[in-house]
Amino acid sequence: RRMHLVCPMNTSPHVDPQKSGHEVWEEFAHSFTPAVREVVEFAKKIPGFRDLSQHDQVSLLKAGTFEVLVVRFASLFDVKDRTITFLGGKKYSVDTLRAMGSSDLLNSMFDFSEKLTNLGLSEEEMSLFTAVVLVSAHRSGIENVNSVEALQETLIRALRSLITRNHPNESAIFTKLLLKLPDLRSLNNMHSEQLLAFKVH
């Protein structure tokens, strides 16, 4: 029986049926590890992040890495052509991936990527928004909520200031960006359910 692992953080959606579950997982981990390391490197550059306790740094990264990756890799989703580019560099149409058993998660990620891309943010704005996504005091397991909250508020103020300066006639952009946070949380929850299904299989 042919198997597929429909995640763009994989090299390809095709899975060698001869390989064991462990081998498939190892290959997948090998594929997404560099992207996760990049998220950690990004976090280290957020002013104030390294001042948080090591426990909270790990907790924020554990909880938020998926959401940061969704923002950083929004460009892998070609809304016009309805294709997704996997890390191996090959593009797959939504219909092809659907036939491979992709879930509603990919469709939701398409919708998210489209709305985010339509905001037309600069690299600097995207970077600051990504920092806001990562530093959230509402993640589970945070031990010093006040410190994380203070950093989060500083980052949100900086984002508002940057957006207001760059888009003086589009005041709704900042609000739209903040509304992306619950969208990302919802995608994160759907992703966790997918992981559970993958593990069960």
Binding site: V36, V40, K44, Q54, K62, L195
Partner: peptide, 27 residues
């Protein structure tokens, strides 16, 4: 399955990436 990050091996990757930097700073 309350902690998908740990199950993915993410925590290990994250800790190593964070610690690596600490070691560099200590050197």
């Amino acid at each position: 399955f309350s902690d998908p990050a740990s199950n993915l091996g993410l925590e290990d990757i994250i800790r190593k990436a964070l610690m690596g930097n600490l070691e560099e700073r200590q050197e």
